[in-house]
Design a protein around this nucleic acid. Structure first.
Lengths: 192, 192
DNA sequence: CTCGCTTGTCTAGCGCTGCTAGGATCTAGG
DNA sequence: CCTAGATCCTAGCAGCGCTAGACAAGCGAG
């Protein structure tokens, strides 16, 4: 292996380490605790090293969001693939979605709430995000019914799931009725 | 008027000025630009004066949220009161809700996104928030249908509206199809 | 009217943040 | 071994939330 190749690989490793550390700190103490200084101390480098990888905190959040999108896409696909009919698929999808949001709040925020310079359904939407949304569309679009455009339909379903996820976590909705809400959503939106 | 009364009134005036200034700055430049220092400079007082009114930034956000909740409640009631049937009422409500969110992003964030120590459906939920949610329930609950609990139903509707509002503003959903999404939501959720 | 006290306000400061300039150090190639 | 360049760190700026302690204004008592 040539020397520049090794250097490049080490650099990529360190970049992954930064992103993983950021995600870890965010998971433990929230995004506010993710400071460049703290990350630098955690990985035993000085601050300017981090700035040589990422332009700022926004770009780190962005990197975490892209990682999370890939994870979520596989989680959704796994959940729907093992379900029987369309009705079971949509509830499985809803459970998987809300479960991911509940288990990884900072990652979910990075993907959908924080300002990480991310735009969806746009020409320069990064691939992992496109893929995660595709995973949603796959299961939801098939339930749109005759004469209903699958895309806006899936968007509304997604919005409902997103609303349930964020309002529950922000303690704007009591968490105990989640199951009933999912069933209700499936009944109405995904009526077969 | 007695002297302590006058002092108390002046103090209340100043408190309203602080909240109004915070809302103004947030509307113009976002919540990140709302710093105690900046607010103090804007109202020509020093920082400790602000801390004599509010324990910190959280409490200021909270005050803005409560103001906004009262505003939203009247906006929703106005919109639904002038609509004819249930179907017209739910679309009017959806439009009013999304309109409020689009016109007052920082206020909406203070109410539903930011950590302002606010909890809904809780014993110590402040009155304006209870009232805003009551305004939502009024119009949405009547569409639940037979054998469906109105409260969870209204919560799901609310979650869908919240999802549309936040995802659109965060540029996760393209804004141009909003009208179609509202119609779709009304068709499915509020089918009569 | 004057004195002491409460109440209100400000100045100054601590520790933290994101971010950057410029110097030190280490490495690879000649 | 010696030099050029890449790499990294020390040190610093401006701004943040928040607070301690100094200071002034206004009140009631004598």
């Amino acid at each position: 292996m040539s020397v520049p190749e090794r250097k490049q690989r080490e650099r990529a490793d360190r970049e992954r380490l930064i992103v993983a550390t950021a995600r870890d700190v965010a998971q433990q103490q929230g995004w506010d605790a993710v400071t460049i200084r703290r990350l630098a101390e955690r990985i035993d480098y000085s601050q300017p090293v981090l700035y040589s990888h990422f332009r700022g905190k926004r770009e780190i959040i962005r990197a975490v969001a892209l990682d999370g999108a890939a994870e979520m896409a596989t989680a959704l696909r796994t959940a729907t693939s093992t379900a029987g009919g369309p009705r079971a698929r949509v509830t499985a999808l809803a459970h998987a979605y809300l479960d991911f949001a509940a288990r990884n709040p900072p990652v979910y925020d990075a993907m959908f709430q924080l300002d990480a310079g991310l735009a969806f359904a746009h020409e320069n939407t990064p691939q992992p995000l496109r893929d995660a949304f595709a995973a949603l569309l796959e299961s939801l679009g098939e339930l749109a019914g005759d004469g209903v455009h699958p895309a806006p339909f899936a968007e509304v379903c997604w919005a409902a799931l997103h609303g349930l996820a964020t309002l529950t976590r922000a303690r704007r909705l009591p968490p105990q009725d989640t199951e009933r809400r999912i069933e209700l959503l499936a009944d109405r939106l995904a009526m077969i």
